[in-house]
């Protein structure tokens, strides 16, 4: 065995990583199974907002347009907030929690000793969390109309905004997992950021009622932009380009930061 012929394939493999689909499938199955065995975080994340959306949608008075909310109904204002509540909780809490714990346990380092990159595990986690978030979103969108609440009128705008928002928030979750190596600290910071996100999304102070300057700030946060984009779509408009751009910029920036700073150990 000559030296050049053995080093070359290695170098090439690193420059153009070929995905081992058998390993990817096994990893996804394995992580999915672990998620089902530890359903606590996910249940807590999903149950509250989904139940709230369904209950809200079933109360006729909540579906009436309100002058206080700029002509929107209470349901129209809160459905996007609740959709984003679930996504934020998953991205700010569940994702950094599992990744920092895997790093603490040495799972990521152990994967480095195999031909498979630990990046595969990150991708599997991202895919699973996104899948859970999308299921929550679908429940919150599909079930309330059964009780008479309105459908989002612009489904395309709704989906595009949701996916861009998911990118921005999951990216933020990855940044948390990159910056904090202690699972408890990461969880604490995630909770803090969760409340900040919810504030700008308008959970306590609805966006239509915010003073102009605060709404301007909110427009540039991932949660504010996403919730307004979803609200616009659900009443039938296309979301303003500004919101989609804000979300895409957050997505790019957080992804780059996470890739730059994420360490395996």
């Amino acid at each position: 065995m000559s030296a050049p012929s053995t080093t070359n394939p290695g170098t090439r493999a690193r420059l153009f990583p070929t995905i081992n689909w058998r390993a990817a499938r096994a990893m996804l199955l394995s992580e999915g199974r672990l998620l089902l065995r530890n359903p606590g975080v996910v249940l807590w994340t999903a149950v509250l907002p989904v139940a709230a959306a369904i209950i809200l949608g079933s109360i006729p008075a909540v579906r009436e347009p309100s002058k206080d909310l700029g002509g929107l109904s209470f349901f129209q204002v809160y459905q996007p907030i609740l959709v984003f509540f679930a996504l934020t909780l998953l991205a700010m809490q569940a994702l950094p929690d599992v990744l920092t714990r895997y790093r603490e346990m040495g799972v990521l380092k152990r994967l480095r000793t195999t031909p498979v990159s630990p990046g595969l595990l990150l991708c599997a986690q991202l895919a699973l969390i996104l899948a859970v978030a999308i299921v929550c979103m679908a429940l919150m969108v599909v079930i309330p109309p059964l009780g008479g609440a309105p459908w989002p009128r612009n489904v395309g705008g709704f989906v595009i905004t949701y996916l861009l928002g998911a990118w921005a928030l999951l990216g933020l979750g990855m940044v948390i997992a990159s910056l904090f190596h202690n699972a408890k600290v990461a969880a604490g910071f995630g909770s803090f950021l969760f409340f900040v996100m919810q504030f700008f999304a308008g959970l306590w102070w609805q966006r239509p009622n915010m003073p102009g300057w605060l709404r301007d700030i909110s427009d540039f946060t991932p949660s504010g932009a996403a919730v307004q984009g979803l609200t616009d779509s659900s009443v039938g408009h296309w979301p303003r380009a500004l919101y989609l751009i804000v979300l895409a910029v957050w997505g790019v920036a957080t992804s780059r930061l996470a890739i730059r700073f994420f360490s395996w150990e």
Binding site: M1, A3, T6, T7, P9, G10, T11, R12, A13, R14, L34, Y102, M105, G106, V107, K109, R110, T113, T114, P115
Partner: peptide
């Protein structure tokens, strides 16, 4: 096995198994 670890690729990882100190599983 004739390969430089600094140049690690999957061929290197297939040749070498490592049991790390203090590494757990889920």
């Amino acid at each position: 096995a004739g390969m430089d670890p600094a140049n690690e690729g999957s061929a290197f990882r297939e040749v070498l198994g490592i049991q790390l100190q203090e590494s757990r599983l889920p």
